[in-house]
Structures are given as C-alpha cells and as structure tokens.
Simulated scan of single mutants.
Amino acid sequence: MGNVLSFGELLLRICPDMDGQWLQENTLPFYVGGAEANVAAALSLWGVPSSYLTALPGNFLSDQVVSYLGSRAIQTDKILYHGNRMGLYYLPKGKDLKNAGVLYDRSGSAFADLRPGLIDWDDVFEGVSWFHFSAICPALSQGVAEVCEEALVAARRKNITISLDLNYRAKLWQYGKAPLAVMPALAQHCHLIMGNIWAAHTMLGIPLDEELIAGRDKESLLQHARLSSAEVIRQYPNCRTVANTFRFDYGEEGIRYYTTLYSKEGLTCSREYMADKIVDKVGSGDCFMAGLIYGFHKNLPLPQTLEFATAAAFIKLFTLGDATNSTVAEIHETMSSYAK
C-alpha cells in the first residue's frame, strides 16, 4: 500500500488548571494536537508511511510546529500556507473534549478559512492509497465542508480508500448548518466509518433505540451496535466496515472500554478494558482510528485489527498529550497482558 494522508486542522492545546494556579506559577502546559494529526503521528510511529495536510499561516510558529511533525517522520510537504492564524483550544487538565469546559479558538484560522480551489488534490494525492478525515473538519465552516467534498470526489476518482471518524463536537457546529445537513453527503464516499451509535444517530440519522440501551448493559449495546452498523452500510453502500467505541466512566476517575467492528462477516467485539484511574482522555479515539488503519494497511484479520486498535486506544489514556507514544511492541504487550 501507499501513503496514508490525514487531513485536518493542526491545533495547539493549552491546559490551564481549574484552580488558576498557572497564573501564580506563570506556566501553561500545551500540546500539539488535532484529531487527524494524532492519527498521522500514531501511524508514523508504527511504521506506516504517513503524511499530513493542513493549512497554516506562514510564520515562525508554523515553521516550528511543522518541524516538530517532521521530527516524528510525518510528511508535511503538501501543507498549504495562507491566512493569519493557527487554531487553538483550551482544555482544563484531566477533562474530556466532550466536557463543557473545553474552549475553542478556531474561528478565522487558516484552516477554517479554506475554500474550494485552494488545494491541488491531484498533486496532494500522488502516491496516496488511504485518505483519512474526521467530522470535525466540516464542522468548522461551510468553506471547509465544501473542501472536504472536493477532496472526497478526487479521492474516489483515484480509487483511494477513505476513512471517516464521526467526532461530534457540538460547540463547533456554529455556522448555521446542522451535522445532518452536511455529513450524509460526505459519508457516502467513505469505506470505513468509525464513531459510536450516538454519533451515527446525530450525524448520519441512523435510528437510535433509547429503550433498547436504557440500561447501558453490554449485551444491549452490542445488539444496537450490530443493528446500527448494518444500517450504516445499507444507507452508505460504499462503506465496507463500521467501527464503534464504548467508553464509560468507571468509579470516580476510571474507565471501562470496549469496541466493535462490523463487516459482511458480522460483528466482532473486542476484549473489555478497565482502569481505576487514567491520565488524559484526549486522543484515545484518534489512536483507535489509527489502529484500524494500521491493521488494514498490514492486512491483518479483522479480529486482530480490532484488538490492536482497542489496546492502542486504551493505553493512550495513560499518556499525557494529544498523540500516542506507545510502540507496536508495547501495544502487543498490553494485548497479551489483558488476554490472561
């Protein structure tokens, strides 16, 4: 297979503490992030040829961040330089991106100001066999939504495999379009769709049976995952595989986590992981997505692909920062230890 290209907004995550101690200490932790950049970083770390496309202003800060990506062996030569600013987001330490505490500062960024015609997709897709993006991209602006459509049409024309992560961030959909007005047209191009049963309902209109899953018991959730995934494939015939993640709080600071993968072979469920305490929730879903792409890139059987992706996502919960630092060997070690 060729190169895996991830497309999305490169961000800086700034992490103040909830007590305001950062004001007294004059220190403010930050991380380089963005959902698609996290996927690119994981794939590169795991030995998959990985490139990343975003839009950045032409200044020294962009140069430094792009150099950082390059140090992680991510190809960045197709990045578009235009506009005036890089996107930011603020997330208090230990909080989840779905938490009300997240603050986005992305309006007017170089990426949010993208519009059709700025990117030469024929050039960008040279040597690319897989294209990945997430629902965060079209959430930013009408222009970016149109650029996503432009990219997907070009990718389909070149027979490139396309993956979509149904990240739903309610705070980002602010330009007058609801997800259901945008995402179905984009999803029709995709071969692998990842998310969960709630995101599939919100973004693709897949029915959600609240009565079936009212108790949140695993058997009912797996049944719903099977039904929901089958409906995704029925409504979006280009889609061959649907992945769902189930992550629930466990105790005060712990996590309960398992996943599914659905294809013509039926539903596969991962082993279940539990932890009493985690470090950082950000980037776990991106790591799972990268794990799926890794498995397909290596032609692994579907159950092995799912277990690798799930273990990779789980151990990311114990790593500070947006992107994973776990190697393939460490992920396999986690898989082995939880199999006992």
Rank of each mutant, 00 (worst) to 15 (best):
I193F: 03
I193P: 00
M194E: 08
G195F: 04
N196A: 06
I197C: 11
A200Y: 03
A200P: 01
H201D: 12
M203L: 14
G205N: 03
G205R: 06
I206F: 03
P207C: 05
P207W: 05
L208G: 02
L208K: 04
D209W: 05
E210G: 05
E210M: 11
E210R: 13
L212R: 14
L212C: 07
A214S: 14
G215F: 00
G215D: 13
G215N: 11
R216T: 05
R216N: 09
D217I: 03
S220C: 13
L222D: 10
A225P: 11
A225K: 01
R226F: 08
L227H: 07
S229M: 08
S229R: 09
S229G: 15
E231G: 05
E231V: 04
I233K: 13
Q235S: 12
P237F: 06
P237R: 13
P237L: 12
N238L: 12
F246Y: 14
R247A: 05
D249Q: 15
D249I: 14
Y250E: 14
G251A: 12
E252H: 12
G254T: 08
I255G: 07
Y257P: 03
L261P: 03
L261G: 03
L267Q: 05
L267V: 07
T268R: 04
C269E: 10
C269Q: 05
C269I: 00
C269W: 00
R271D: 04
R271A: 05
E272I: 04
Y273P: 01
M274R: 08
D276V: 02
I278A: 01
K281A: 11
V282A: 07
G283C: 03
G285F: 01
C287M: 11
F288P: 04
M289V: 13
M289Q: 07
A290M: 08
L292P: 07
G295M: 06
G295N: 10
G295Q: 08
K298T: 02
N299P: 05
N299M: 07
P301V: 09
Q304N: 09
Q304G: 00
Q304Y: 06
T305N: 12
F308V: 09
A309I: 10
A309H: 07
T310S: 15
F314W: 08
F314A: 13
K316R: 10
F318L: 12
L320K: 15
L320P: 09
G321Q: 06
D322K: 11
A323Y: 04
N325R: 14
S326D: 09
T327I: 10
V328T: 12
I331Q: 02
H332W: 08
H332C: 07
H332P: 00
H332G: 08
E333W: 01
E333K: 15
S336K: 11
S336C: 09
S337Y: 09
Y338W: 08
Y338Q: 05
